[in-house]
Design a protein around this nucleic acid. Sequence first.
RNA 1: UGGGGAUUAGUGUAAUGGUAGCACGACUGGCUCUGGACCAGUUAGUCGGGGUUCGAGUCCCUGAUCCCCAGCCA
Length: 576
Amino acid sequence: MPDAEKRATHFIEDMIDEDNRSGRWGGRVHTRFPPEPNGYLHIGHAKSICLNYGLAEKYGGEFNLRFDDTNPIKEEQEYVDSIVRDVRWLGARWTAMRDDDPNAGVLFASDYFQQMYDLAVLLIRKGRAFVCDQSPEQVAEFRGTLTSPGRNSPYRDRSVAENIELFERMRRGEFPDGSRTLRAKIDMAHPNLNLRDPVMYRILHASHHRTGDEWCIYPMYDWAHGLEDSIECITHSICTLEFENHRPLYDWYINAINEGNPAPIHHPQQIEFARLELTHTVMSKRKLLELVRGGYVRGWDDPRMPTLSGLRRRGVTPEAIRAFCADIGVAKFNSTIEIVRLENAVRNDLNLRAQRRLAVLRPLRVVIENYPEEKVEELDAVNNPEDPSAGTRKIPFSRIVYIERDDFREDPPKDFFRLAPGREVRFRWAYFITCKSVIKDAAGQITELRCTYDPATRGGDAPGGRKVKSTLHWVSAERSIPAEVRLYDHLFSVPNPEVDAPGGDYKANLNPASLVVLSDCRLEPSLATVRIGDRFQFERLGYFCVDPDSTPGRLIFNRTVTLKDAWIKIEKGRAR
RNA sequence: UGGGGAUUAGUGUAAUGGUAGCACGACUGGCUCUGGACCAGUUAGUCGGGGUUCGAGUCCCUGAUCCCCAGCCA
């Protein structure tokens, strides 16, 4: 990734540096991202992708995208497609990737099923695996507990010949689901429960999204995963902390295969790191699925979701996500990142590239009494003060304009220096405006402001250097266009929705104000020609992007993130 | 009465026996045609207790706390 910045090395880089010094892998670095296609990718996966791809890139190595598709019951092609799309969007480049074929170079564990099967037969021949007829309940009962040893399965000492025959019959489909398993013969008293004769294969008469009905036995993750990495000659198998307990089992499998083997298989080094946790959201696939299925959000790509598709629809750029991942670091400490860090990365990125526009979300009508009725002026506005090459555009100014209701106070509190009766402010790129009077309806609601403008301040500067305390955004009433704007806030109203869950239900912490739809917004006319996905800064408000729900006649914008707002901070401080 | 990990400002993350630094947050101030951005400053930390050493976040001993593991899920 081109935007990798200079920073201290983390522990995995230190390990690779050490490997390179010792010549362990001959200078080779080969990583992979191994998702199970049973859900959509989220920001936590982005951390793993950035880590794995980033290492391959940094060390001139290779990076595989491989699906860990060993459980047909939970996996679907829809998820495969979305994951390929998201990894590509994030900017990772896998080995043999092509831009004209989405699936080129994508790898699948299911392509290795026969090799895995052959290796399982090898372990049976070596007396290291056996077919077990225990029921799932019996297996659990015989496993023992955390503090007490298990007992051997009564089927543990079957002959090699019988095991081979039964395993072949399992594959042929002669037995019902759950009736038999293939298990490794290790140690039922081992303090690490993963080594108490773990199941290697289970019978599953289920159709697989890629292999169809070719198989009715499927390898367990622990058996399959290490072999996948071995087959692909992965050097550094990077995974999350909870698999630390499994590493001895992967090592056992490969050692058992290689013992006395004239053609030993590759033995990758597994390294564990802490997965990403974020405040004000949830990250487990199960809970995200529940939010989608339960209608709590509008889908996997709801802009409030931490999914990559949600973030993309929200207007977050892949560059911002990569910068965020680089910023938070990699370690073995189970930490929770404050979501403002992500928001900050988004602002930093968009500040530099998003063009500025004027948009009024909650319009308040303003009549400029001394401005001619029919006159319209095209005023010059800078597109991006951070990027002179973005140029300028014209904005029409006229007698009647809209400003933000929040930008006027009839009785302004201290430190409020926006518009108020008798006060002069600047209209961005236009004129100095003074509020002369306030018009209200019968209910006492402000419906209109009557103001005057100073013709000498055209463009926004006073000739004598006269200052105003604030600059407001505005749009011409007649020459602006309507739009719907969707304001998003944190999905959950508390930092740790799973920990502080009333009644044990994290959903009780859903933020009722996470989506606010404003349907009467007014935009400057240059926005009439935008395309879906285009991003802008609406000055003084935040960053917004065009939602796919937009139609030619009706523009819909999503608020990606607000600008920092010093005034809100002052107000909140006063409330306290 | 198990095994495996972890613990540095509010939140993260560096420091690999030698000045505890950085980012975000918070708070000041400056600047500004976005109360944005930018600039300057302030705040605040090595889980506890022993030990080794001229010197310990780092090494040793000993406690504490937190996370993971008893799916034919991954």
